[in-house]
Design a protein around this nucleic acid. Structure first.
Lengths: 235, 235
DNA sequence: AAGAACCAATCATCCTACCTTTAGAAAGGA
DNA sequence: TCCTTTCTAAAGGTAGGATGATTGGTTCTT
């Protein structure tokens, strides 16, 4: 009969609006948001209402306030922010094992669902990896590697996997850099095998390829840090 | 030389205290927390400060306020609360694929890291599943099945996997129930094979067992709901 | 040029006041 | 007695002001 009318608190609506600005990219990560007085005026709400909304975004991890300085954007999605919080209590090993799980699933799904266009993009980034592996520009390799993985995630057609994966970003970057300087191994070794499997739509081989390169990443961390060896895994 | 002095805002500290009460279980899910006036007094802070903390917990998803009624506990961990928010926008298929990824990894790790005591618990729950599968008590089967999976997760010695898994609970329960009423298949089929593999510490067989039973769960959802068939996967 | 003192911007906290919603009690009518 | 309506107290929602604390930059002194 009637459409149900808005049933959210004012500060809740302000929260949503600000959140949209952040996730939508209007407010870039690292930038300072307008001061309280300006936002009060632009939004037409009182100081308390605005502050409650901002406090919510701070606790979720999207904003960070520094007294005497301003309020700054620190993350772009709630999931990624909370997962970051959670991740700070996790070991690199745990993150790697999660990556392993996600990579395997995505690789298998990508075999079934990938488009030719996506396959081309994978090959492009793989080529970039090869080219930058021994070069001086560490970031270039890192980016190419990351883009390759994300492309595979997207080809799996599962936003949930992709969102989780992107939230792992920071923790995994550490590992990528960490491993890059270990001599005697080429860490793009898994890429060609993986992409070839995805090209042939062969999930078994794809997962095997993932196993292989995750093993390489994991090995250096394992000696001193295997949870099986240190029962300090409590809360 | 000097211990670094507290560097958190007051409302931030209040947030942490309240959060501990929730995650610690002092404040049960569904219960109403003391009213603002009482908390102000007990914590020794002003209403604004308290409200900012509460607002934070509301946005994270741990609390829910109802004007004129009170404030109630709705979840017990930040990750699970946010993941629930996120999950409500996901299909059952996406959740199942994430479960697949987590189950596989946990099964493989459990092969390496399980204790004999954990193996016994798995066998216990598996037995419970068999006994309750055809019985009238749906919840008993659901619980046994869930406990079995969680035991495997714990045996993997990776808190991160376990936390994510527990956050999937609600969405996956739907699927478990959904599948239980499809005739002609016994859905505990995968359990014996999985546990046998974990007993023998054989990751390959364990993962194969996971593949098998997830396939069963997934099949009924697939016909109408394969993301590969419907390109409505955007945001 | 280096250091100290100052100042303006900004968030943090607290306070009081009033409004809106809700649940439940009280009153009234059938 | 039972149902409906009305009233009321309690709880959270919103508002605006006053003051304190921190930070970054500027200006002044040496």
């Amino acid at each position: 009969m009637f459409e149900k009318l808005e049933k959210q608190t004012l500060s809740g609506r302000v929260y949503t609006q600000l959140q949209r600005l952040i996730t939508g990219g209007e407010w870039k990560i690292g930038s300072r948001i307008p001061r309280e007085a300006d936002l009060m005026e632009q939004l037409g709400v009182s100081r308390n209402t605005l502050r409650e909304a901002i406090r919510g975004l701070v606790q979720v991890g999207l904003l960070e306030t520094r007294q005497g300085d301003g309020t700054f954007v620190t993350a772009s999605s709630e999931l990624s922010a909370i997962l970051n919080k959670r991740m700070s209590r996790s070991s690199v090993i745990e993150a790697l094992e999660l990556q392993h799980a996600l990579d395997r699933e995505a690789a298998a799904l990508a075999c079934l669902r990938r488009t030719d266009e996506e396959l081309e993009r994978m090959e492009h980034y793989s080529k970039l990896c090869r080219e930058t592996l021994d070069g001086p520009d560490h970031d270039a390799y890192k980016d190419a590697d990351w883009n390759l993985h994300v492309t595979i995630m997207k080809a799996s057609r599962n936003r949930l996997l992709l969102d989780l994966y992107e939230s792992l970003f920071e923790k995994l970057q550490i590992s990528i850099l960490f491993n890059r300087f270990i001599p005697g191994t080429r860490y793009d070794v898994g890429h060609p095998a993986l992409i070839s499997a995805i090209r042939d739509r062969d999930p078994e081989r794809a997962m095997q390829a993932v196993d292989d390169y995750i093993m390489h990443f994991k090995a250096p961390h394992l000696e001193a840090d295997d949870p099986a060896n240190s029962p300090r895994n409590g809360e």
